[in-house]
Computed example of a mutant assay.
Amino acid sequence: MFDKIQQAYDILSRPDADGELVRDALETYGLDTEVTTISTDEGSTDFVKTVVPGADRDAPTLGVIGRLGGVAARPAELGPVSDADGAIVALAVALHLGEMRARGDVLAGDVRIATHVCPDAPTSPHDPVPFMGSPVDTSTMNEHEVDEEMDAVVSVDATKGNRVHCERGFAITPTVKEGWVLKVSDSLLDIQERSTGRPPSTLTLTMQDITPYGNDVHHINSILQPATATDAPVVGVATTSVSPVPGCGTGANYLTDLLDATGFVVETAKDFTRGRASFYDETEYDRLTSLYGSMGRLQTLGEGV
C-alpha cells in the first residue's frame, strides 16, 4: 500500500498536476474516471470522480472524498502543501482498491471516490494559521464530489491548523447526519484500532463546524462540509499534527500518517460494503429525531444569510 501513497504523492506534487494525470493512473486498473474542469476568476481546478465496482449491486456504497483547497499554492509556495493530504489519501485509496480488484479481490459494494486537483491554489487568512484558499467554493465542491449514490461518506482532510487536536497521525470525527452530531461509530473505532495497532484517536467537533461555509462563523476546517449536502452519514478522517501547521505549508505531508489513514479508509470500505460496519445506530437516530425533531436547518446558511 505504501507504493500507492508514493505514487499519489508523485502525481500530485508535479507542477503540471491535473485530472488527466490522475485519470491515466486510475485507468491502469480499468477504473472509469470522470474529469471536470471548473474555472473561476480565482483560477481553475479539475474534479476527479472514479468508481471501484463491487460484486453486489445491492450492497452498500461507500463514498470517499478527498477534501482540500488545493494540492499546492504556486507560485507562493513550491511543492505540495499540507492541504494536499485529502487528495493524496483519496487517490491512494482508489489506486489500492483498483489494484485489489484487478487481482481478483473484489469488494462487496461500490466505492465512489472524488477529489479535485489544483496545483496553484490561493491562500486565505485564518486563525491560528493561514488556510489554503481554492478557485472554487465549497458548494461547488459538494456539487462535484458528493454523490447521491453514496450510502455513507468518509471525508479526508488535513486538520493541522488548530490547537484542538495536538497529536500526529489521523483522527476520526463523530458521525454527522442531517445536522445531528452523533456518537463516534464503534465499528469505525474498531477498524482504527485494528488498522493502526494503537488506541483510537477522535477529533472534537462543535456545532458550528458542521454548518455550511459562508455563514460568517469559525469552522475548524472544511472536513464536514460534505455533510451539508447529503442525508447520508458522514465521518471525517483528519490528518493531524502536534503543532499548528498552515494548510499552505510545504514539507508537511507526513507519508507514514497518510499510509495509516489510507489503510483505515480501505478497511472501512471492506467492512462497510459487506455490512460489517455501520456509521450510526439507526434506532438511536430515530429516537433522537422523534424526541427533538429535525436538525436539517444546520445544513443551511440559516436565516437572514
Score class of each variant (00 low, 15 high):
L205V: 04
A238K: 06
H219G: 09
V237K: 04
M207L: 14
N221G: 15
T204P: 00
A227G: 13
D209F: 07
S241L: 05
P233L: 00
I223K: 02
S241W: 03
P233R: 00
T206Y: 10
D209H: 10
A229C: 10
S201R: 15
T240D: 14
N215A: 11
V237F: 02
T240A: 12
D216P: 03
P244E: 09
N221R: 06
A232K: 06
A227Q: 13
T228Q: 09
A238G: 10
I220W: 01
H219L: 10
A229Q: 11
N215K: 09
S222E: 06
I220F: 04
V235W: 07
D231R: 14
I223F: 05
T230L: 04
A227K: 11
P233C: 00
V234M: 03
G214N: 01
A227Y: 13
S201Q: 08
V234K: 02
D209T: 07
H218G: 09
G214K: 03
V217F: 07
I220H: 04
L203W: 09
S241R: 10
G214Y: 08
Q225W: 12
V217N: 08
P212R: 07
T228S: 06
A229G: 14
L205N: 02
D216V: 05
H218I: 14
H219P: 15
L205S: 08
Q225C: 02
P212I: 10
T230P: 12
G236V: 11
D216L: 12
A227F: 12
Y213C: 02
A232G: 07
P212C: 15
T206W: 02
T239F: 04
V237D: 00
A229P: 11
L205E: 01
A229I: 13
P233S: 01
I223Q: 00
M207R: 14
S243N: 09
V234D: 02
T240V: 15
Y213P: 01
T206H: 05
V235Y: 04
Q225T: 03
V234W: 05
S222D: 12
L203R: 08
D216Y: 14
Q225L: 11
V237Q: 00
V235P: 08
S243T: 14
A232L: 03
